[in-house]
Design a protein around this nucleic acid. Structure first.
Lengths: 122, 122
DNA sequence: CGCATATAAACCCAAGTAGTTAATTAACTA
DNA sequence: TAGTTAATTAACTACTTGGGTTTATATGCG
């Protein structure tokens, strides 16, 4: 039930066809037919993917005669990058145990971080 | 249909509950019960979210007595950040090149059809 | 052993998604 | 005006997902 913007964006990106469409749009605007060409898929299927991308704000469309030209929009991608950056230290640190990281920010706490009062027995 | 790793990761992240779980794990390892506490949701529901996160490689679990401690894993998040970086110039360049391209194919009396205008004088 | 706690598994259900083909709208062209 | 092309909408099927309950399993303790 992704109601928030970031969830909508990530859901839209969680499909290889849609990411391929975005990659194609990196080269410039494109009509729907041209976008559909690389895929072994009917036009309506591509059209639905485009609607998902548009709803997520990842593309915009404009009419040009009988064509609809699609264009990539960067803002939601920036949100994704910004969100992921929060976790940079997780993949950059060589720590085997995040406990060590925790101790850096809460030095006096010897307990585990759960709020339950059970003590470990080993 | 996400068979590839990145699609699986993005699908797992496209849920606010699961992102909240990851944010919580940023503070350190945590039992399932402690992770579930902030959510108005049954334990099995949380357990399912954890399974999705684990399948995506975003967390790992270890048994500790009757507890399962969850730990965040950074590698898939790095993949997301790396993927998004490909599009950095899209959100940083304010689409100068695409504007130029647009002007080539449509004279300046064309009308925007949908969203906010990215047209700017520069 | 018997009970409590922690978590997972199995099953149901409603809603969403991804694809299809067929029909429809919109715009150009002759 | 009719015909062609571009793209979307409609109607349908199959599958997945996120939630719920209920049941099962594993561990620790008295």
């Amino acid at each position: 039930m992704p109601l928030d913007q970031l969830s909508t964006t990530l859901a839209a990106l969680a499909d290889p066809t849609r990411r391929a469409i975005l990659a194609r749009l990196l080269m410039g605007e494109c009509s729907v037919t041209a976008l559909a060409e690389p895929f072994d898929m009917s036009m309506p299927a591509v059209s639905k993917h485009l609607r998902v991308l548009e709803r997520a704000g990842l593309i915009s469309r404009r009419r040009d005669a009988q064509f609809r030209h699609c264009r990539i929009e960067g803002a939601p991608l920036k949100d994704v990058a910004t969100w992921a950056e929060r976790y940079r230290h997780v993949w950059e640190s060589r720590l085997d145990r995040l406990d060590t990281y925790l101790e850096q920010i809460t030095p006096k706490n010897e307990k585990r971080h759960g709020r339950q009062s059970h003590r470990k027995s080993r």
